[in-house]
């Protein structure tokens, strides 16, 4: 018989190992993306000054990292690689959808647990779970044939492919994630706290607002983070409804291109330097996501410690 101590040690080791393995996947992906973007990094001259394997830009200068923000625009054939409009596009679309999908999704989760009649709640839950499994290409097709013409009729520039279409499609796509995650969190609030609230004569709103939501905050933060990650990584649907013009958007009706749709649009048709720059843009995207996520996790940690 194995002693409880050994068994516990083994379990601790196993759990830690599994957790590290999960985290290891992102390291592998980063390594892979870095390796593929090596050609571009290498040709900057910062890595190996003598090497000019990479291409030179229109002015005959070797590629520099600063080109990613200083070039005149995005034109791979002319060796112009400015990522800035796409970074801005990605962030605008993602934050826009988080602003809509967060409150909406949590609202639906509260509805499911505290307001919905039993049968309606059951049906809405199934609907949510189905929507979570609809492929992004279906969202994209639907967006292109329903949403885009609708926006076109409202837009001052008479075209529907726009930042707004991207935000809306991302919102629709990510609401199910928010609902399922926050539903799980709300359900897990201990029943005795709710009974206590009922005993104090609190109304439904007060119970939800001051007991349930605070108690479920970790899960709610999780839900928003998941939504955000899902939205920033989304490719196919955004590609179909955003118009993909590489320009700083000057209004919500302006077309945008996101970092991810840029990769999806051009990767299959790019070679050498261009291909490598696309991977580099993936790396840039990963760095941005990492910074945002680290900030979110540190924030939610201090929240937890202070309460």
């Amino acid at each position: 018989m194995i002693s409880a101590v050994t068994r516990d040690a083994a379990l601790a080791f196993l759990l830690r190992s599994l957790a590290l393995a999960s985290a290891g996947i992102i390291c592998l992906i980063c390594l892979f993306v870095a390796r593929e973007s090596w050609l571009a990094l290498d040709s900057t001259g910062t890595v190996n000054p003598a090497d000019t394997v990479g291409s030179v830009n229109a002015d005959g200068e070797p590629f520099q990292l600063s080109n990613l923000v200083n070039d005149d625009g995005w034109n791979p054939d002319g060796q112009q690689f400015n990522l800035l409009p796409m970074i801005v596009g990605s962030l605008l679309a993602t934050f826009g959808s988080a602003l809509l999908a967060g409150p909406l999704g949590i609202g639906v989760a509260v509805f499911l647990n505290y307001y919905a009649p039993k049968k309606i709640g059951w049906a809405v839950r199934r609907l949510v779970e189905i929507m979570a499994g609809v492929p992004s290409v279906v969202y994209g097709l639907w967006g292109l044939s329903v949403l885009v013409p609708m926006i076109a009729s409202l837009s001052p520039i008479e075209q529907g492919q726009s930042l707004l279409a991207g935000i809306l499609i991302l919102t629709f796509m990510t609401i199910p994630t928010v609902v399922v995650a926050s539903d799980a969190a709300i359900q897990a609030v201990p029943a005795n706290q709710i009974h206590a609230a009922a005993a104090l004569g609190l109304g439904r709103r007060a119970t939800v607002w001051s007991i349930v939501l605070p108690a479920a905050r970790f899960g709610l933060v999780s839900a928003i983070i998941l939504q955000f990650a899902r939205a920033i990584g989304e490719t196919m649907a955004v590609l179909m409804v955003c118009g993909n013009i590489v320009k700083m958007p000057n209004s919500i009706f302006a077309p945008i291109r996101t970092l991810t749709s840029n990769i999806a649009l051009e990767m299959g048709y790019a070679d050498n330097h261009h291909r490598s720059i696309l991977f580099l843009s993936g790396l840039v995207g990963l760095v941005i996501v990492s910074v945002l996520m680290l900030a979110a996790n540190t924030f939610s940690k201090t929240q937890r410690l202070s309460t």
């Binding site: 957790a19 590290l20 999960s22 985290a23 996947i25 992102i26 390291c27 992906i29 993306v33 992004s136 983070i225 998941l226 955000f228 990650a229 899902r230 920033i232 990584g233 989304e234 490719t235 196919m236 970092l259 991810t260 990769i263 999806a264 990767m267 993936g282 995207g285 990963l286 996501v289 990492s290 996520m293 680290l294 979110a296 996790n297």
Partner: peptide, 16 residues
Amino acid sequence: GIRTALDVLGGVPSII
């Protein structure tokens, strides 16, 4: 760290 790593993983574009 692991939580952040997983969140970043969640934000990796599907094409990557």
